[in-house]
Amino acid sequence: MIVGYARVSSSGQSLDVQLAALAAAGAEKIFSEKQSGSHASNRAALQDALEFVREGDELICVRLDRLARSVSDLLTICERLVAKGVSFRCIDQAGIDVTSSSGRLMLTMLGAVAAFENDIRRERQRDGIEAAKVAGVYRGGKARIDPEAIRALRADGLGPSEIAAKLKIGRASVYRILANSAAAARGNAI
């Protein structure tokens, strides 16, 4: 059986291109997720795919960086596949045979290049943020929590746990905003 795995890093990204490529490559079952690729152990769909595959199956993905972001994760995943008798194929980087020494060497080199590209991208992003801060145009990320909504719910008599559940945020955030509001109120009263 050919089993596919697709991943994008954030919920705003689309899996459609990867899913179509996996289907075109013959994947009979596809595991997909919208999750950061920083650690393989944090990705439920990947773990499900690794548990699902059986001897004689083939796991495929579109690009190596969709499977793993670090060489160590990549090698660990491939060792797990080899131990189960499962082959691995990467659609965009063909010719990788994880059962041979030369295939593992190629896999390691491609994984190292992918990790290097990721590091370079992060450095460019950091440099851009620093330049924007110096220019005074960096505003940071979009606010995800509305302090006014928290204060309004508190004024309606809801406790911090109820507020957190209702707004789908952490209780610590509720406590922090309520404490900041109380401190600001005390500062204005003086």
Rank of each mutant, 00 (worst) to 15 (best):
A183V: 09
A131C: 10
D156T: 03
L110W: 03
L15D: 11
G103H: 04
D16M: 04
K84W: 00
S101N: 07
G141M: 10
V53G: 09
D97P: 01
A143L: 14
V174C: 01
S100C: 05
R121T: 15
V174W: 01
M109Q: 11
V82M: 04
A189F: 08
R186N: 06
R154W: 09
A68T: 06
R80F: 06
V53A: 10
A143M: 13
E130C: 06
G103P: 01
Y5D: 08
G85D: 06
E130Y: 07
A112M: 13
E162S: 05
R89G: 01
S181R: 02
S100W: 05
A40N: 05
L167S: 07
R186E: 09
R63H: 07
E33D: 05
I145S: 08
A189V: 03
I77M: 03
L59K: 12
E148K: 14
V174E: 01
T76Q: 04
L158T: 02
E130F: 00
E28W: 04
G141Q: 12
A149G: 12
A114M: 07
R69Q: 10
A23Q: 15
A94Q: 03
F116A: 07
F31H: 11
I169R: 03
R89H: 08
E28Y: 03
M109S: 09
Q13F: 00
D57K: 15
A131G: 14
G159E: 10
T99G: 04
V98W: 00
R66T: 08
R63D: 10
S41W: 10
Y175E: 11
G159A: 14
L67P: 04
S87R: 02
I91K: 00
V113M: 13
R69E: 07
E28A: 09
H39G: 11
E123A: 11
A149L: 14
K34M: 11
S9A: 12
Y175A: 02
F31E: 14
L178A: 03
N188D: 13
A164M: 05
R69P: 10
T108P: 08
L50Q: 12
I60V: 15
R66D: 11
V134K: 15
I169P: 05
I190H: 10
S10L: 06
A149R: 15
C78M: 04
G157C: 10
Q35Y: 12
F116G: 05
L178V: 02
C90W: 00
R63S: 13
P160V: 08
R80G: 06
D73E: 09
A179T: 06
A114W: 11
D119P: 02
